[in-house]
Every structure is written in structure tokens, then in C-alpha cells.
Design a protein around this nucleic acid. Structure first.
Lengths: 235, 235
DNA sequence: ATCATTTATTGGTTGGACCACTGGACCACC
DNA sequence: GGTGGTCCAGTGGTCCAACCAATAAATGAT
């Protein structure tokens, strides 16, 4: 048994501007700040938060990148409608804020629709190098099962040779770095993933797209149910 | 004929920190800055760019949000492997930098895989309100065809009642705000979209998921070919 | 060798100043 | 009535010069 299993998070202490981001982000996403509303000037915000204007600006910069705000030089700062413009990073925030885990289930569902197609494409397009990388990740690399699984998905996405697939997959992986324990805390799920890795590798190796897709869909369905069960227990 | 048709672009002048973002982003994505490499301290960067440190910091903040950089207090700034951590916003940059339009074709392909499933889900789950919104956008709202089409896709995504679908769809729409002209500059494509809107509305209205999916897939295939043809001509 | 302490480096924050752009008010002119 | 010009207050963009806080490397005591 490992000496410490006690939450190995780096625990990066929140920076001031990040706290401001969180506050404003919540207010926009729960409607306290309506779409189109004009926010107070940076100078006022700085005073409100008892913080320097440069700090406020770094926060606003991030909110602008999230597509939550529109900043107009000489005019002011306006809230946007996040449903129409919001960024995928919003989902990460929504998942962690969301008590009922509805958003996490949304993510699982979307994954179930999107990722099997990637497996299909990967089986058609994988190069020998893709195959070697995948083989290494599955059979040789020394990794925790969570990290190995993430790596496998990553390499499958990369084998599509579609940059958007590769990058989009990162999103799911970032979520599962935080929530993967809901799945990998159970020994039989780890066994299931081991089987999955072997099977999908064979399907991709032998260029069987339908089979790769089916294998991926099966494991995602299984994982989705497992996570739901896990959530139901801890609730 | 309108009195002026002379280039109605808002023409927002680039801010200094955005130029810095672009420079560093390119260097990371083309490998000039290798993954894991340590960047110079903020103070040095400021001097290099002949710019204030606060300006550099706003740029670094954005690059951090793009998951291109990892910033460690007391340590330094490190480049990340964008293939493993990068954000969807990178794709937007890649699309515009990419001379051969390979990334744009990647986007179209991914859309063809993802969006038809949304139409399927929408047909199953749409509420009367979703339907009313869709009807308004298609038959009543006064919009350019590009804006109407974006709105239609947006509302279909929203009718999935899956937040991730809604937000993910924004990504495609942001791309097509910039590149939609490749499609909508041709009159027969506009006609095609009008038909598409009517058909998909009926399918969703009458709760026919397979039909909605097929209609969506058809139009996306058509659009993909049209865009390819358009690119081939302007090349 | 090992561990505690110090020190240099580097990101985080601050206060205050000035520049650049926007929108609105006002005015002169046609 | 409307058209364009000028000015001004408000607001975001940038700058400067410090100091605070965290990290890693160097140092020294054990």
C-alpha cells in the first residue's frame, strides 16, 4: 500500500486575478450579469475588489479569452451571451461548479458520440509510427492506469491525423484527469480498461475501422454507466 | 443598390499584448520553442519586445489560457506540448495561419462527424420552445443567410439540451463567421441552405432523428465539397 | 552525506502616471 | 433639418518603479 494516497494535487494556490475570474464568471453564467450588460470601469472594479488595476486587467483578459466578455477600447467592458459565444473551457468550470453532475454526464454523452468516430478514422489512417507509439503506451510504458488510458486516447486521436480531433480530445482528457478516479478507483474497471487497450490496439493495427469504433463505443458505454454508479454511491 | 458597399469590416486595431501572443504562439506551434523549454523571465521578455512587463504579463496570461504555457511562481515560464494540452482556440489560429487550408478541411471533416449526431439528439429532445425558436430563426428573423445558418445550427445544438454540444458548436460558428463567405458567396449554395433549413426543421419538428441526421449529413457533405471547390478556384 | 538556512531569481501585486480611443455634446455651416 | 467639425469626459491600453511571495540553487551546520 502506498504511504500516501491523500490527494496528490499540486494545490497551486489561487492567484488573485484567478479569484476575480471565478467571481465574475459565476455571475455571468448564472445570469447575475445579463448578456449585453456593461460592467463597471476597470478602475472601479479594482476598487471594488480592493486590488490593483493591473490585476483586474489580467482577470478581464482571461474572461475575454473565455468569450464571456467583450472589451472595447475607449468604451467599456460588456458581458456576452455565453451560450452563443462561450468557449469549451467554460465546461470545465461548469463541471466543477455543477452540484448535480449534470454537466459531467453531458460530457460523457458527448464523448460517447464523438470519440468512437475517432477510433474509426484512426483505424483507417494510422501510420506505422502511430502504431508503435500506441503499442509502447499500452504494453511498455510505466504509467498509472489513468495516465495510460489518457495516453491511449490521445494517441488514437492523433492517429486520425486531424488536428481538431487531437485538440478536441485534450478537452476530455483534462476533465478526466480530475474525475477519472470515479472510474479507476474500482479494480474491475481497471481490468476492463486493460482489455479495452488490447482490443482497440488489435483493431487499429489490423485496420478494422468498424471494429475499432464498436470497441470504443462499448468501453465508453461501460465507463459511462460505471461513473454514474460511482456518482450514485457517493451522493 | 446601397450607396456604400465598401468593406464593412470593424477593423479593430491589434493591441500590443496580442501581437506578443501571436509571436510566441507561432514559435511554440512551429517548434521554435520546444515543449518543456523554459522561456526567459518576464523582465527579459519585456525588454526584448521593448514593452512593459505588465503588457508581457497580459500576453503570457492568454498563452497560459491557451494551454501553451505553464507559469510557475518563483520558477519560470515553460512551454507545453500543445498537441497534448492545447485548447480549441489554437485551431482558430492554425486555420488562419495555415496556407494550404489543411486545418480548415480538418474542421469541416470533424464537423461532418459531430454535428449530424447533434441533429439526431435534437430531434429526440427538442421542446416546443426549441421548435418555436427554430421556426422564428428560419422563417421570420431578418438575417443574412450566413447569420441565419449560424443561428439555426446554434439552436439545433441547444435543442440537444447538452451544454457541451451547445458550446462546442460555438467553435464551428466562430470559424464560419470568418470563412462562411467561401460558401455563401454562391447563389445556389444559399438556395441549398434554404432548403436545408426547411427540411431539418420538419424532421426535428416531427421527431424523426434518423431523418434529421441524414439531412444534416447531406448538407454538410455538400458544403464541404462546395468549400473545397471554392478554395480550389481562389488558389 | 544529510538537512536546515540563506540567497538569488522569478512570478505576483501595487500605486500612480500618461497615452489612445470612443461617444456624446456642442457648434458652425449649408 | 441635417451635415460635418471640434472639444471633452470617460474608459481601456501601456508604462514605470517599486515591493511581496514562491521557488530553486547555493551555502553551511550537523
Amino acid at each position: 500500500m502506498p504511504a500516501q494516497t491523500v490527494l496528490a494535487q499540486p494545490l497551486t494556490r489561487s492567484r488573485l486575478h484567478e479569484e476575480i475570474v471565478t467571481i465574475i464568471q459565476k455571475q455571468i453564467m448564472n445570469g447575475t450579469i445579463a448578456p449585453g450588460a456593461k460592467l463597471p470601469p476597470e478602475r472601479d472594479l479594482a476598487e471594488t475588489f480592493s486590488v490593483n488595476r493591473a490585476t483586474v486587467r489580467e482577470a478581464l483578459r482571461k474572461l475575454e479569452n473565455l468569450e464571456l466578455l467583450e472589451i472595447r477600447h475607449g468604451d467599456g467592458v460588456y458581458a456576452k451571451n455565453y451560450l452563443e459565444s462561450g468557449n469549451l473551457d467554460l465546461i470545465k468550470a461548469a463541471v466543477s461548479l455543477d452540484e448535480g453532475h449534470a454537466t459531467l454526464l453531458n460530457v460523457l454523452e458527448a464523448r460517447r458520440f464523438a470519440v468512437p468516430e475517432m477510433a474509426y478514422m484512426a483505424a483507417l489512417r494510422r501510420t506505422p509510427q502511430d502504431l508503435a507509439d500506441l503499442e509502447h503506451a499500452i504494453f511498455k510504458a510505466e504509467l498509472t492506469m489513468l495516465e495510460r488510458d489518457i495516453k491511449v486516447h490521445q494517441l488514437i486521436a492523433r492517429a486520425t491525423h486531424n488536428l481538431l480531433c487531437t485538440i478536441f480530445l485534450n478537452f476530455f482528457n483534462q476533465i478526466f484527469r480530475d474525475y477519472g478516479y470515479l472510474y479507476f478507483d474500482h479494480e474491475h474497471n481497471i481490468t476492463r480498461s486493460r482489455t479495452f487497450h488490447r482490443e482497440i490496439f488489435e483493431a487499429i493495427k489490423h485496420g478494422k475501422p468498424e471494429e475499432a469504433r464498436r470497441i470504443m463505443l462499448d468501453v465508453l458505454n461501460y465507463a459511462e454507466e460505471a461513473v454514474k454508479a460511482s456518482l450514485a454511491n457517493t451522493r
